[in-house]
């Protein structure tokens, strides 16, 4: 049978559009549902108070603070390491074999299941180094998890700085390191920032890596040091959804909403930075 190619095309394109909608519409629905159901639970008290009565009442302040601490710690660890690694890969490494091994290592690191990072953090930081279940252990684990994101995006940003900037800087008598510091990094900054913020969003939303390394089930006080356990938003949502019976659904949706807003805000900021600098890129 030979159908008119125009008709076939119309059918095919409709099917493609339909599939695309099947992917996209649920995304919109997830966000709308959480916004609608969660907005009612959001109040100043919800954001600024300790949970009470076995998490069935009160606020989620310690979880917000905990997530904030963990993300901050993860970035403090992963950004310097990732940035230096990216500089090495773009500016120093000439050895293509070694480069390939590093690239494969990064690909693998990006593909390691999040719960395996959790196991690793438990074995190395909690037990071997004896940090215990603590902000320190959790931050380091999350930091290692977001390392590939930071390396990859920083490297892309550094590679996109024109070679001529380096030549100019060197020809003016700058050392290699000065060239990187003053003629390359300032112009790669937007890309590095974008990658870092995406990493932050990822770290804020992950649960499995913090399960055994830091997350506290119910701990209605704020951390005093990096060796304390903390509650964290994603784990709190998990606990509320599966471990605590008879929780008012508003609290669940409210927690989901706060987590979603933090994560999406990070992504929105990253996208905005990228768009802003792309539009005014000067070379």
């Amino acid at each position: 049978m030979n159908m008119n190619p125009r008709v076939t095309q119309r059918i095919a394109f409709s099917a493609l559009l339909f599939s695309t909608l099947l992917v996209m519409v649920p995304v919109g629905m997830v966000i709308v549902v959480i916004l609608k159901q969660g907005a009612g639970a959001i109040s100043w008290e919800f954001l600024s108070q300790m949970p009470r009565s076995g998490m069935r009442a009160g606020g989620i302040l310690p979880a917000i603070v905990g997530t904030f601490c963990l993300v901050l710690g993860a970035v403090c660890f992963a950004l310097p390491l990732g940035l230096l690694a990216a500089i090495y890969l773009s500016e120093y490494s000439k050895d293509t074999f070694l480069n390939r091994i590093v690239r494969l290592a990064i690909i693998n690191l990006a593909g390691v299941p999040s719960v395996v990072f959790g196991l690793f953090g438990l074995a190395l930081f909690v037990n071997f180094f004896g940090f215990g279940a603590s902000i320190l252990s959790g931050s380091l684990t999350l930091g290692i998890m977001i390392l590939p994101v930071i390396i990859t995006s920083s490297r892309e940003a550094i590679d996109s700085v024109p070679q001529s900037f380096r030549e100019v800087s060197l020809s003016l008598g700058a050392t290699k390191l000065q060239t990187i510091r003053h003629a390359v990094l300032p112009h790669a900054l937007p890309g590095i920032l974008t990658g870092t913020i995406l990493g932050v969003g990822r770290a804020a939303g992950e649960t499995a890596p913090i399960l055994f390394t830091v997350a506290a089930f119910y701990l209605p006080r704020l951390p005093g040091s990096i060796f304390d356990q903390v509650m964290a938003l994603p784990y709190h949502l998990y606990v509320l959804s599966t471990q605590v019976p008879n929780v008012d659904s508003g609290i669940r949706y409210g927690t989901a909403l706060v987590l979603l807003v933090i994560v999406l805000l990070m992504n929105a900021i990253a996208i905005a930075i990228r768009a802003h600098f792309r539009s005014k890129k000067k070379w």
Partner: peptide, 29 residues
């Protein structure tokens, strides 16, 4: 390279101010 300077075919101003371009090499010293 401080004794032997070079001017390239296409002008490559660094994306900063005129002044910072002129003093780039001096600051590195």
């Amino acid at each position: 390279r401080r004794q032997v300077g070079i001017i390239f075919a296409l002008p490559v101003p660094l994306p900063t101010t005129v002044f910072e371009n002129v003093v780039y090499g001096l600051r590195r010293q």
